[in-house]
Simulated scan of single mutants.
Amino acid sequence: MSPGGRPATTPPDAWAQAALDEVEAAGVKALSVEAVARRLGVSKGGAYHHFRDRRDLLRAALALWERRQVTELNAQFAAVADPRERLHVALVEAFVALEPTVIVQFMAASDDPDVAAALERSTAARLALLRRTFRQLGATRAQAEHRAILAYGHYLGFAQLRRHAPDLLATPARLRAHLAQLERSLLEGL
């Protein structure tokens, strides 16, 4: 209960985060208002204070993911003035800080139009940041494009590996060695 004696409502971002957690665990197709309510420990009726239906909840979850994992992270990376350091910080975030990510589940559900649109926007934003970074490091447009695709493609593949082969780079030493090799490869000749 709220201090005023009215039933407390779960805020929309809490529902959206719980929906992301549910997608991470079970996939987009398994997302339901009931499952998210169970995860939150509340009745499903509370969702309808904020969302029309499951589709609306999914859209809110996608918007939250984009805001946190794309817009805010890209702004954080862009604030790093030195492009070499920016690349390093972005790689550490993508390959060390993040656990298996919901993006793997989103890629598996790319036939959903809302998921596909979010993935398209996130891919464009992430590639643009990487292109700018490589251009600032002295790469030609073509080199910057190639290296941006390599870096982002590696991130997507690595997210998949972390989810489906978690022991592959499980030790911090192996992960650091892999990251160092990737960074050397991306910077070669710049």
Results as ranks from 00 to 15, higher is better:
R38K: 10
G45N: 10
L130A: 15
E120F: 12
A47Y: 11
A109H: 08
A25Q: 13
A25R: 14
P83W: 05
Q105R: 15
A97N: 14
G138H: 10
R38I: 01
K44T: 04
A90T: 05
I149W: 02
A75K: 09
E145I: 06
D21K: 03
T133C: 14
V28A: 03
R131E: 14
V115Y: 02
T71L: 12
S32C: 02
A79V: 05
Q136D: 14
T140I: 11
A30P: 00
L57H: 04
W15C: 09
L58C: 01
H50I: 03
V33F: 01
R84V: 02
L130V: 10
L73N: 07
V92G: 02
E22I: 02
W15Q: 05
L87C: 06
E66Y: 08
Q69C: 04
A139D: 10
D53A: 07
D82Y: 06
F134R: 07
L91Q: 12
A81G: 08
D82Q: 07
E34H: 14
D114I: 06
L73Q: 12
A78P: 00
V23I: 15
A118F: 01
T133P: 03
A94N: 12
V102N: 04
S32Q: 05
R132D: 15
R147E: 04
T101E: 13
R86E: 02
H49N: 12
A37P: 01
H88K: 13
F134Y: 06
A30Y: 03
R59W: 00
A148S: 15
A148K: 02
L91M: 15
R132L: 12
F95C: 00
G138I: 11
A19T: 04
A117D: 15
A151M: 08
D53G: 03
L73V: 11
L87E: 04
Q76N: 05
V36K: 01
E66T: 11
W15A: 07
V80A: 02
F106D: 04
A19V: 05
E22Y: 02
A108Y: 04
A19M: 05
R131A: 03
R132V: 08
R59A: 08
K44V: 00
W65A: 05
G45A: 07
A97V: 13
D56W: 06
V102R: 03
M107V: 09
A148T: 07
V115N: 02
A75Y: 05
A30D: 14
